[in-house]
Structure formats: structure tokens, C-alpha cells
Nucleic acid binder design. Structure first.
Lengths: 241, 241
DNA sequence: CTGTGCCAAATTGTTAAAATTTATTGATAA
DNA sequence: TTATCAATAAATTTTAACAATTTGGCACAG
């Protein structure tokens, strides 16, 4: 009974409370730092440095790192330690294409299977997102707009009613987020751009509630793919091919 | 240069050479044992027992276990150690549905994107699979037929040309395989059943080479879903709901 | 039958140190 | 100067012993 509850909690949500064993804490903060670009793509992750930096010893640290390897955010080279996973235009394109495909599949299923509660949560999260009218600082963008934006898309996807498809979506999102962060940094998100996104979301909500799977899939794909050209430019400016 | 090669090797294949650090070895053998049912679904994985059983100490063992948690084959309960992930009819249905959906998506893309080499490898692996005419022992089934069967389906999927979609397919397959193993054990695979499968594969090859995505998706879904009723029965006989 | 408190067992984490492997440096030879 | 190569330094990987904390079980009293 208690076990089942714990398991459900583990499966259901990713960003859990910050109280757990040290390995999970280290995993979370390290992942956060890699996604936010604190470490450069192929940078060496020195054991001794990480130990003092995150205040954990070898055991938990290696646990955290091997989980990041499973997330493909870190690569392990036998007997030569760990490095931040490289970034490339090829991976950018593949990751965004895979995501668009998967998100399209999930959206179709959600439109086919979603119930009234699902419709309600889509509307609710869309409303909460639309209420973010202007953004003062970049921090506010990440902590405010982006959080609600994620909640909106997650609400849409959850209609597919398949824990395993949603789990795959989460895994892929972790990998996409490092690239996506480049876009969020580049786009200061002017009120004009914000309004543009707001309209895209409104259009999505319309076709979703009208249960028009074909139009929804097209709108979703366009919506997801818009950051790709900007990210491409950023990567090229940094000399990444 | 050497780094890039190593990375590619890491991403590309899962069943690597058995020479690497102890954590990866322990991970592989433990995973194998869990999938093959050596440990019961909710069984406690005692640290001390695993240490002597696999001949590794705490460090590498915890690494292996946390990777299995990421694979959802093991669940961690804070301060109470690790257990083999539970099995349920609900998960069986969700996992097979998710797999059919994903495999369908990948198949459509492969039919759309696959080139001549892809067609050749589909034909080649299908031929190799069809050559397995009869099976004497259950071991031969797993080591012979199933290996070629996996190679056939992997060849089909690889036409989608997306490393990340294929990676997701692998991850999901690891989770499905524990259920699928129940089917392989139950079905002794009579020559009649083998012939049935052979015909399904031949039909699949036909529609795939004819690039008929719709028919292929339907055939594939039926082909993937056949084990579900048998597995359901096995689970119920074991008192799993 | 129901709590309560104690004891054994298990998890989690640290530290130190051994064994290997990789990287670097500097001297030597072509 | 350049290349080779051995010695040395550094880093990874693993073990082992130990401390701290938590959980689980069990006798015992109410």
C-alpha cells in the first residue's frame, strides 16, 4: 500500500520535492546546470571538482552522473571519466523532428481519447498562460512564462491517457531542453513575440476543442518547430556544426 | 576523434562487448535477470545479497540499480532500498498500446523515408528469420528465433532515420520485454505457430516494399498485439491484476 | 487486540587507500 | 627541430571499513 503510493509518485512526476537522498539532489542540480549551459558541451566533468562543487562524495556523485548518461546529457568514456554531451546541428534537427512526430502522435490520441476534465485542464492552463502579458526580466521569463507554457503543453498531452507515452515525452523533453534554452536566452521575448505565441496557443485550443486532429497536428508541428532556425543560428555563431 | 567514436558506439548499440567497468556489467546482468523473471515482480533487492551474487561492492551496484530505476525495471523507495518493479494488467495494456502506437509512427516514417539499403536489409533479415523452420528446445527459441525476430523488426524501424525515435523504441522495448518473455515461455512455439508468424512477417514485408503505409500500420499493430491475451492469462494465473 | 519501546538489520554516505589507466613532461636520439 | 619513449603525475574506478539514520519486527504491558 505504502509501496504502491511511493511508486506512483515516482512514475507520475519528475520535479519532486527537494528532500531525498544526495544522489537525486546532485542529479537534479547537475542536470539543471547542464541544461542552463553552465557547462559547455564537450566540457570535462572532473570528479574532484564536482565533489567539492556539489558537496557530495564519490558514491552519490557517480550515481547522479550515470543517470545523466541515461538521459544522454552526459557521456561516459570508459576509464576517462565523464563529459557533457556534445551538441550539433544534426542532433538539433533530429531531436526536434522526433519531438514533433511524438507530440503529433500524442496530440491525435488526446483528441481521440480526452474527456471533459481534459478539455477543462487545457482551457485552464491556456488561460493561466495567456495572463502573462509582459515580461520584465529574463528570469521572469523562465520562472513565469515558461513554467505555465510547459503546464499548458503537458495538459494537452495528458489527454492521451498513456503513462508510458507521457514518460517518453518527458525523456525527450529533457534532451530538447538544452537546445530550447538557447532559444529562450536569444529571444528576449518582446511583447510582440509574446502576442504571437499567445495567438498560436489560442488557435491550438480552438482546433483541439473542436477535435480537429488534422489541423491540430499541423498547428502543433509549426508551433514546435519555430525555434529551430533561431537555435541553428546560435549554434553556428558558436562554431558548432 | 577518439572521443567521438566512443560516443557513437555508446549511442548506437545496446548489447555491447562485455568488457567495461563493473557498474555496466552489473547493470547488464541484473537487467537480464529481471527480464527473464529470475526475480519476482515486487521482490526486495537486498544490497548484501546482490553484492555477493554479482561480485561487486556498493558503489558500482548502486550505479547499476539507479540505471535500472531509470529503465523502470526497478523502483527505489527512499531509505528502504530497491525492489523489482511491479507488474500489472494495467501496465501490460498501456505498454503494449504505447508500443503499437510508437511502432506505427516509426513504420510510417520508415515507409516514407527508407531508401534502397533499408529495403535490402528488411528483405535480408526477413529471409534469415524465415529460415528458422523448427525449434527443438526453448533455449533455441530465445537464442535463435527471437534474436532474428528482433533483428527483423529493428531493420524495419531503422528506416525512419531518426536516432532519437529509435532510442525511444529501445527504451520502451526494454520495458515490454519483461512481459513479452512471459509470452515466449508460454508459447512453446509449435511448428504451426511458427508458420503463422512466418506468414505475418511475409505479409508485412509485402506491404512495406509496396510502400503501403496504411495497410502496413494495421498489419503491424495486429502482429504486435497478438501476445497480449496470452500474457493476460498468464498474469491472471499468477494472481496479478 | 492494540500500542510502546527496544533491538537487530538495512540503507545511505564518508573517508582512505589500492589498483589501473590515461595524460604529461622532459630527456634522448634521429 | 622533431620524434620517440620512459618516467612521473594525475585521474578514474573500485574496495573496504566505518558512522549515522532509518526501518522492521517482536516481546510485553495495557
Amino acid at each position: 500500500m505504502a509501496i504502491a503510493m511511493e511508486i506512483d509518485r515516482e512514475v507520475a512526476m519528475e520535479p519532486d520535492a527537494p528532500r531525498q537522498n544526495l544522489a537525486i539532489n546532485a542529479y537534479r542540480t547537475l542536470k539543471h546546470d547542464i541544461i542552463r549551459g553552465r557547462y559547455a558541451p564537450k566540457e570535462k566533468l572532473l570528479m574532484s571538482r564536482l565533489k567539492e562543487c556539489y558537496g557530495v562524495s564519490t558514491g552519490p556523485l557517480r550515481e547522479a552522473l550515470s543517470q545523466l548518461v541515461a538521459d544522454r546529457l552526459v557521456v561516459a568514456i570508459s576509464q576517462r571519466g565523464y563529459r557533457v554531451a556534445p551538441m550539433s546541428l544534426a542532433e538539433l534537427n533530429d531531436i526536434y523532428d522526433a519531438r514533433a512526430q511524438l507530440e503529433g502522435l500524442i496530440l491525435r490520441l488526446a483528441i481521440e481519447r480526452g474527456d471533459d476534465d481534459w478539455e477543462a485542464s487545457v482551457l485552464a492552463t491556456a488561460h493561466r498562460l495567456a495572463k502573462v502579458t509582459d515580461i520584465s526580466s529574463p528570469d521572469e521569463l523562465l520562472d513565469g512564462w515558461d513554467l505555465r507554457h510547459k503546464a499548458f503543453h503537458t495538459a494537452i498531452a495528458s489527454g492521451c491517457n498513456s503513462p508510458h507515452l507521457l514518460q517518453m515525452r518527458n525523456t525527450l523533453f529533457d534532451q530538447v531542453e538544452r537546445y530550447r534554452h538557447l532559444w529562450l536566452q536569444e529571444t528576449v521575448m518582446s511583447p510582440a513575440a509574446l502576442e504571437q505565441k499567445r495567438q498560436e496557443h489560442a488557435a491550438l485550443v480552438d482546433v483541439i476543442l473542436a477535435r480537429d486532429a488534422e489541423k491540430a497536428a499541423i498547428l502543433m508541428r509549426d508551433h514546435l518547430m519555430t525555434p529551430v532556425p533561431i537555435i541553428t543560428r546560435v549554434l553556428q555563431n558558436r562554431g558548432i556544426s
